[in-house]
Design a protein around this nucleic acid. Structure first.
Lengths: 206, 206
DNA sequence: TAGATTGTTAATCGATTAACAATC
DNA sequence: TAGATTGTTAATCGATTAACAATC
């Protein structure tokens, strides 16, 4: 649909979506911009502006229809579009992600996991087989999957990235390692840097 | 130190810090603003401006001293300040976080984990004891820890939050549940919403 | 010296907020 | 009707980028 939403708008829309899930669960039919704004500690006119970008309209005196608004956000942001991916690094974090059953709600489908530790190869995590990292090129050749979830230890972050680019034609890397990956143009990296985030979170403490 | 850095500046400084770790490991003595900027795909004058906020100065023709710059960021952002916290919800994700040994690098010290599942209570994850959630109020009374890492299933997110606020005087919640928590003013929530982030990450795909 | 890099100001750009007419 | 809420414009605010003198 509309592919011109800014990163900030997209981010807020995902938060609105979270709130809408609760409203659906509570069987509430309508929601107002000020209700959303209050939960997120933002301005209500911003909420209305974001929603107007979806070409969705609300009702005066009533607000927005919860179900319609949720469907609209899902449609615009691609919640229902299936995105196949594989995990690289089947350690604690990789396994936790593999065991997180709810990723299907945002269209993420984890198809396989890879590791170089032979004691892990052949095991299963939540019905996902852990395979030898050397099988990755062949796997990608067959499946054309280009999203990697990178959960290797920090020291292997760049080496694994180089391997993914050269041998597995990766295009999207969801990076859980606490480092900045050096990648050529055209490869998209999203950093999920827990340590950095924690610093930001607790910056003001004490 | 300087407590007036904006969220955006703090975020970029944490990324610079990641890069500096690599430079230290590679025994490189100096780094220029354009080297940092290139890795992060941002403007080099922005890097210089951010660093100038630390009251740090570089050397013309040479750049910044890697060690000094890293120490300065750590000092300003509180990497070395110890922050005790406990985990609420010892499931896969909670356990993965407990097993993540490197949190000490950003000053995070996970002291305990709590769960309501009696089959988990009494077990250990990475030398951290899993305790009964009902022991939490007493534990907080003794330790005065006010940072909670919330890794319960989505449905228990708000209930657990209410409990933490009312019974455990929590002030900071690192929220890993995919929902918006309803909290009174004065309680700080940092959302680590993996599903929302994945949507944002893959928005432009296809 | 010539050349590379910082530090900083001014210009630009984008995002948020305020305000209010239109609507039901 | 009176009142609450949307939709949208204009005003404000903040963040990024461009430019360049100063430095070594």
């Amino acid at each position: 649909m509309n592919k011109n939403l800014s990163d900030k708008v997209i981010h807020r829309l995902t938060l609105y979506h979270c709130i809408l899930i609760d409203y659906i669960n509570d069987n509430v039919e309508f929601i107002s911009s000020s209700q959303i704004a209050k939960l997120l500690h933002i301005d209500d006119s911003q909420v209305r502006k974001d929603i107007s970008l979806l070409n969705k309209s609300g009702k005066s005196r009533v607000g927005y229809t919860v179900k319609e608004l949720m469907a609209s956000i899902q449609e615009s942001l691609g919640y229902n579009r299936k995105k196949n991916a594989y995990i690289v690094g089947a350690g604690y974090l990789g396994s936790a992600l593999a065991n997180y059953g709810k990723f299907s709600h945002c269209g993420l489908n984890i198809v396989a996991a890879f590791d170089n530790d032979q004691s892990k190869v052949g095991t299963m995590v939540n019905n996902i087989a852990v395979r030898d990292i050397n099988e990755l090129p062949e796997f990608v050749e067959k499946t054309n999957i280009d999203i990697a979830i990178l959960t290797v230890p920090r020291v292997y972050g760049q080496i694994a990235t180089d391997f993914l680019i050269e041998e597995a034609k990766v295009k999207y890397i969801w990076n859980f390692t606490p480092r900045i990956l050096n990648v050529p143009a055209g490869i998209h990296v999203w950093n999920e840097n827990l340590m950095a985030n924690f610093i930001q979170f607790t910056y003001k403490i004490k």
